[in-house]
């Protein structure tokens, strides 16, 4: 009797496991479809350089000026860290932020050659200061925004939500205020999630690039948001694969099926646009991508694909964000900053 019971238990167990295996077999998420594109992977396009360990979390790029990189930290709004381009020295930079300034977790610091800015799109507020004395004061009252870049002088480009859709606007801290651009971001599903992406400023030029997360497109405009061209990334996902649903009990709209990421972070130097791609090419095997991040390179002038290279994971961490300043690529891996030299 005992034997029969044990046998029956084993049968039940194996049956259950088999059901889940069948489920795996038939589910979309586990199928590795071909993506129908090929990557060019020429050797030695990047050379690894120095590494800096911050030991604490929460770092993000704030800007670049005269051979130094500035990083902000989520937990210390009034302090930036200045790192020399070879990642040898770090220097804490104290910012004079007005008393009783309340910042949300969505705040960002921006640094350029002459100015320092602290922006928070959720409040919303925009503090501006001179880089020499680093005392910040409220410059003006911007609209609510979800992304911001500085385009020189007192001009910014902001991403705002208007009528339930993401829009790009130009914003000036003087009396001009903000100006809506004509239909730049194209709605495919819901207008918010489907148009989500990364706003990138091309250094030393008036170009701005917006790279969509969920489709194979990016747009390039001038700093007045006049469309210069629409670029295509090399994959074939032209339509955002996302579904959104509204959860009544939480009063929030959320993505209701796993979104298909096409492009993750993006960055640009004067000549090239760098996109951290989320998709595997037909000439790559999944195993070889497990411990690297793929960066696809496009020409800024016309959006044409050039080639790709891999950035290896560092101590088990994937790159979180990266910037390219001149011939140097700086990647943030959790609390490590890693420099790569570009050989092109």
């Amino acid at each position: 009797m005992m034997f029969k019971r044990i046998l029956l238990l084993v049968v039940c167990f194996l049956g259950s496991v088999f059901m889940v295996i069948l489920l795996c077999f038939f589910s979309d998420g586990f199928r590795h479809n071909k993506n129908n594109f090929i990557r060019l992977l020429p050797p030695s396009k990047v050379t690894p350089g120095n590494i800096l360990d911050f030991k604490t979390q929460g770092w993000n790029f704030a800007g670049y000026s005269s051979d130094s990189i500035y990083l902000g930290n989520l937990y210390t709004p009034d302090r930036l860290v200045k790192v020399d381009s070879e990642l040898r020295d770090t220097l804490a930079v104290k910012l004079g932020i007005p008393n009783r300034t309340k910042l949300t977790k969505g705040y960002t610091n921006l640094v350029d050659d002459s100015s320092v800015y602290t922006l928070d799109g959720n409040r919303p507020l925009l503090l501006a200061g001179n880089k020499s004395n680093r005392v910040l004061a409220s410059a003006s009252k911007p609209p609510f925004f979800t992304q911001a870049i500085h385009t020189g002088g007192n001009s910014f480009v902001l991403r705002v939500v208007q009528a339930g859709q993401n829009k790009l606007v130009t914003y000036r801290t003087d009396s001009v205020g903000f100006k809506m651009a004509a239909k730049l971001l194209e709605k495919q599903v819901d207008g918010i999630f489907c148009t989500d992406g990364n706003l990138v400023k091309v250094p030393n030029s008036n170009k701005i690039i917006y790279v969509y997360y969920y489709r194979n497109q990016f747009i390039c405009t001038d700093d007045n948001l006049n469309l210069l061209y629409k670029g295509k990334t090399i994959d074939t996902v032209s339509h955002a694969h996302i579904k959104v649903d509204y959860i009544k009990s939480l009063n929030e709209t959320t993505i209701s099926s796993p979104p298909l990421y096409v492009n993750k972070q993006s960055a640009a130097n004067e000549k090239y646009l760098f996109i951290h791609s989320a998709l595997i090419a037909d000439n790559e095997v999944a195993e070889s991508l497990e411990k690297v991040s793929v960066i696809d390179v496009y020409a800024v002038k016309d959006g044409k694909y050039q080639f790709s290279f891999y950035l290896p994971d560092f101590r088990g961490n994937k790159i979180k964000d990266f910037r390219v300043y001149g011939q140097s690529l700086y990647a943030l891996y959790d609390h490590y900053l890693y420099k790569y030299q570009l050989n092109f």
Binding site: L23, C24, F26, S27, D28, G29, F30, K243, D245, I247, T254, I255, S256, S257, P258
Partner: peptide
């Protein structure tokens, strides 16, 4: 909706 986010169960 949570089930829909699962790579195994979304369909």
């Amino acid at each position: 909706i949570e089930l829909g986010k699962s790579p195994l169960l979304n369909s």
